[in-house]
Simulated assay, not measured.
Amino acid sequence: MNHIHTAQYNFCTLFIGLFVACLTGPATAQETYRVKENIHYRSGVSDDTYIHERCVLDIYYPEDATGFPTVVWFHGGGLTGGEKFIPNELKEKGIAVVAVNYRLSPKVKNPVYIDDAAAAIAWVFKQIADYGGDPGKIFISGHSAGGYLAAMVGLDKSWLQRYGVDADKLAGIIDFSGHAVTHMTVRAERGIKETQPIVDEYAPLFHVRSDAPPLVLVSGDRELELLGRYEETAYFYRMMKVAGHQQVYLYELDGFDHGAMAAPGFHILLRHVNELTKK
């Protein structure tokens, strides 16, 4: 594998990558895909109407294939809003995509939404083989709040341990512009303003470790990002390196703000999924 430790993408680089992808087309163009929607990933809790409403996921997968990778995708929305969706950029790429809803603040408080993310990932580990996927090729990803959830669950092993899953079995964590410090909504629930960063056990930065799964960090343009998100991401990258992690990657997408950076980021996600699952 070609180890790229840092990279800064500009418009030209992205255009070339996307143009090549369009020319080559998906590697599995002859496959058919199915979607199963609103699968409950928590059992025995149907009497809780909010859990019944929000703790559901959709799975999009190649119907007649086996051994394919899976990307678990968490939507953004500041932990206060948002809705699951299958990103168009990940369709017909020979992979499964699991789009997850989770409970939201202020109806619930921290750490309920983190635990929901862990429960959904654990469901994928236990069920993906039934759909043809390889449990050894599960990636977790998301944008903004979704990236924060992916990083939290992937780095702090305690969340998946409670569901009998080892976080180190993840094939990779791909974080699109998620908080590296304690999330602003977690802080808001404590009365802390968004411009006052803290790092505690609810910050991915708190859990940097050398033995974590491969970690891909993608940020928008540092001058356009939200609340210093690029600098958070860059420091997260640096501390993972200092801790001795050997497979951490940092990308800055020139010209793209916090909302717009997700679409070009999928090119990076797919490249790393392909490289990390090569035989």
Score class of each variant (00 low, 15 high):
170 L>A: 06
171 A>H: 11
171 A>V: 13
171 A>E: 07
173 I>E: 11
175 D>Y: 05
176 F>R: 00
176 F>M: 08
177 S>A: 08
177 S>T: 15
178 G>H: 09
178 G>V: 01
179 H>P: 06
179 H>S: 09
181 V>T: 13
181 V>E: 15
181 V>H: 02
182 T>L: 01
183 H>I: 08
183 H>E: 08
183 H>V: 09
187 R>P: 00
188 A>M: 06
189 E>S: 07
190 R>N: 06
191 G>D: 04
192 I>T: 07
192 I>L: 01
192 I>D: 08
193 K>N: 13
193 K>M: 06
193 K>P: 15
194 E>V: 00
195 T>W: 05
195 T>S: 02
195 T>E: 15
195 T>Q: 07
196 Q>W: 00
196 Q>C: 06
197 P>E: 12
197 P>G: 12
199 V>Q: 02
199 V>D: 08
200 D>R: 00
201 E>R: 04
201 E>K: 02
202 Y>K: 06
202 Y>S: 02
203 A>S: 11
205 L>C: 09
206 F>W: 12
206 F>G: 03
207 H>T: 11
207 H>E: 10
208 V>H: 03
208 V>F: 03
208 V>K: 02
209 R>V: 08
209 R>F: 07
209 R>M: 03
211 D>V: 11
211 D>A: 04
212 A>S: 12
212 A>F: 05
213 P>S: 08
215 L>P: 15
215 L>H: 15
217 L>K: 15
218 V>C: 09
218 V>N: 09
219 S>R: 07
220 G>P: 03
220 G>D: 13
221 D>S: 07
221 D>N: 09
221 D>H: 14
222 R>H: 12
222 R>G: 11
223 E>Y: 05
224 L>T: 10
224 L>M: 10
225 E>G: 13
226 L>F: 12
226 L>M: 09
228 G>I: 00
229 R>P: 14
230 Y>R: 12
231 E>I: 15
233 T>G: 10
234 A>L: 12
234 A>V: 13
234 A>S: 12
235 Y>R: 02
236 F>I: 03
237 Y>F: 11
237 Y>K: 06
238 R>N: 10
238 R>V: 14
238 R>D: 15
240 M>A: 09
